[in-house]
Simulated assay, not measured.
Amino acid sequence: MRAALRAKIIDVCDRKIVQKGENVGLSFYAFFANRNDDPPLLMEAATWWIETHRLDHFEKAVKIRDMVQRGV
């Protein structure tokens, strides 16, 4: 996963956790605008989320942030 996507995921997770608490869940769509303005980046996130890690549609932001920080 490219560094820019990692940084974006960590930033979004941090903001969601601050706004809604440690139990907030999100999907990989949370990292993108409603408009699909960067399809390759969206596919990179989807591949990491769905194919590589077989995550559920919604996961805890804390879990995702920790995985990305560890480089999993």
Results as ranks from 00 to 15, higher is better:
F32V: 02
N23E: 15
T52C: 06
L55H: 08
A3K: 11
C13F: 09
Y29M: 12
D66A: 09
K63C: 07
A33V: 02
C13I: 11
E44D: 11
W49K: 08
N23T: 12
R54N: 13
G25E: 15
L55T: 02
H57M: 13
D66E: 14
Q19Y: 03
V72P: 00
I10M: 04
F28A: 08
K20V: 03
Q19F: 03
T47C: 05
K8V: 00
H53K: 14
A4G: 00
A4M: 02
I9N: 01
K63D: 06
V68T: 04
H57Y: 15
K60D: 12
A45R: 07
R54V: 01
G25H: 14
L5M: 04
Y29N: 13
C13N: 06
P39A: 07
V18E: 13
S27C: 15
L41G: 11
K63W: 12
L41T: 13
L5R: 00
V62H: 02
I10P: 00
Y29P: 01
G21H: 07
V62N: 03
H53R: 13
R15G: 00
L55F: 11
I10T: 07
W49S: 05
R6A: 08
A4I: 14
H53C: 04
I9L: 01
M43Y: 03
Y29A: 12
L55M: 13
A61G: 08
D38E: 14
R65T: 10
A46G: 03
A46N: 02
V12Y: 01
P39D: 04
D14V: 12
E59A: 14
D37G: 01
I64K: 05
A45I: 09
G71Y: 10
H57S: 03
W48D: 10
